[in-house]
Amino acid sequence: MTNPYESTGPIETNSPSPAPSSPETRDLAVPGETTEPAAPSDDVREEPKPKVKGSLAGGTWVALIFGTLLLILLLIFIMQNQTNVELDLFAWSFTVPVGVGFLLAAITGALIMAIVGGVRMLELRRQVRRARKALR
């Protein structure tokens, strides 16, 4: 009687065979298996590439291109709207093309916005000065 737990030959396992190492047998490797040895997992880490921060000059350049495109669109709008209209401002009355009237309204709005923004910046500067004096 033989013992079923005794080994009489090579033990067969379901694990894949080691990857071929000779150049002739590399082409016979099973798909999904690596043929190169794994890199050591010691503290060999690739340094992350530093991210390039945006610069003031780059932002200005993008804003300049964007502004130029807007000016081209505005010029096309003014050229297509040449019908004269009468504008009344306080005691003055004048006649201008529609496109120019819209341009004047946009400039007036931008000036009002700049004034309000400037007043706000002055207020913030005043608060910062007061806070610095209080810390001394």
Rank of each mutant, 00 (worst) to 15 (best):
K49Y: 01
T35C: 07
A91N: 13
F90W: 09
F94G: 05
V116R: 13
E6C: 01
G117F: 00
A105P: 03
L71M: 14
Q127A: 13
I115V: 15
R132D: 15
V98S: 03
E6P: 00
P23R: 06
R125P: 00
L64M: 10
Q82M: 05
I107L: 12
Y5F: 14
Y5A: 09
G99C: 05
E24R: 11
M79P: 00
P10F: 07
P48F: 01
T8I: 05
L70Q: 15
P23Y: 04
G99A: 04
V100Y: 00
G9I: 01
F90E: 15
F94Y: 09
V100K: 02
L87F: 03
R45Q: 10
I107T: 14
Q80M: 09
L103M: 11
G117Q: 12
P16F: 01
T25W: 07
E86I: 15
L75N: 12
G101C: 04
A57L: 11
F66I: 01
A114F: 07
N14Q: 06
V100M: 06
L56A: 14
P31I: 05
G9M: 02
D43A: 11
V30Q: 13
L69K: 12
L75Y: 04
L103D: 01
S7Q: 15
V62M: 09
T34L: 05
I65N: 15
S41V: 12
T34C: 01
K133G: 11
L64F: 08
P20M: 02
E33M: 15
E46I: 05
L28V: 00
V52L: 09
P20S: 07
V116I: 14
F90L: 12
R130K: 10
L135Q: 09
F90P: 00
T108I: 04
L103C: 06
R45H: 10
I78Q: 10
L124C: 02
M79V: 14
T25Y: 08
L104P: 01
E6M: 05
V85F: 02
Q82A: 08
G117M: 05
P18Y: 07
R120I: 09
A57G: 03
L75F: 04
S93N: 11
A29F: 00
D43V: 07
T25S: 09
W92H: 12
Y5N: 14
L73Q: 13
E47M: 05
L56Q: 11
E86T: 15
V119R: 14
V85Q: 11
G59Q: 14
L104T: 06
L70Y: 09
I107Q: 12
R132Y: 01
I78K: 09
A106V: 15
S22L: 07
P4N: 08
K53D: 10
S7A: 11
F66K: 12
G99H: 06
A29L: 14
T108M: 08
I65W: 07
M121G: 01
L111V: 15
V52H: 02
F94D: 04
R129Y: 03
V62W: 08
